[in-house]
Simulated assay, not measured.
Amino acid sequence: MTTTYALLLRGINVSGHRKVPMAELRSLIEGLGHTAVRTYLQSGNAVFTTEGDEDEGEEHLTRQLEQAIEEHFGFRVDCLVRDAGYLAAVAEACPFPAEELEGKQLHVTYYSAPVGPEAFADLDPASFLPEEFRLGDRALYLYAPEGLGRSKLGEALHKPSRNKGVIATSRNWNTVAKLVEMTRD
Rank of each mutant, 00 (worst) to 15 (best):
L87K: 03
Q105D: 01
Y110F: 15
K104V: 00
G85C: 03
L106M: 11
A119L: 08
R82F: 08
A113K: 11
V77C: 05
V115C: 01
F75V: 01
H72A: 12
A88T: 10
H60L: 10
A119D: 04
L80C: 04
L87F: 06
L101M: 11
H107I: 03
Q105E: 13
Q105W: 12
L61Y: 10
V108W: 09
L106F: 10
T109I: 10
A93M: 04
V115Q: 06
A88I: 00
A89H: 06
C79Q: 05
F96A: 02
G116K: 11
Q105Y: 07
L61E: 08
Y110M: 14
H72W: 03
Y111E: 04
E118G: 02
V77H: 11
P97K: 10
A89Q: 14
L65P: 07
E66Q: 14
V115D: 00
H72S: 11
Q67N: 11
V77D: 05
P95Y: 12
A88C: 01
G74K: 09
A91W: 03
E71P: 00
S112Y: 02
Y86M: 02
F96C: 01
G85K: 13
F75Q: 04
L106N: 02
A68G: 09
P114G: 05
F75R: 03
I69D: 12
L65N: 04
E102F: 09
H72E: 13
T62C: 13
C79R: 09
E99K: 13
E71R: 15
L80E: 06
A113Q: 11
A88L: 11
L61F: 08
P117N: 11
G74D: 10
E118V: 03
T62I: 01
G103D: 03
C79H: 07
E70I: 01
K104W: 14
C79N: 10
S112W: 05
T62V: 04
S112A: 13
A113R: 13
F73A: 04
A98S: 12
E100C: 00
P114C: 11
E92W: 04
L80P: 09
A119W: 01
T109E: 02
A84Q: 10
F96D: 03
V90W: 00
A89P: 08
R82N: 08
L106P: 08
T109R: 02
E70Y: 01
A121I: 04
P95D: 07
E66A: 13
A89G: 12
F73Q: 07
G85T: 04
E92Y: 01
L87N: 07
V81G: 02
I69V: 13
R63M: 13
Y110D: 08
E70D: 13
K104D: 06
F73E: 09
A89M: 06
E100L: 09
E66V: 03
H107A: 09
H60M: 12
P114F: 08
P117C: 01
A91N: 13
Y110H: 09
I69Q: 07
Q105P: 06
Q64C: 12
P117H: 12
A91S: 13
I69G: 07
A121N: 01
E70Q: 14
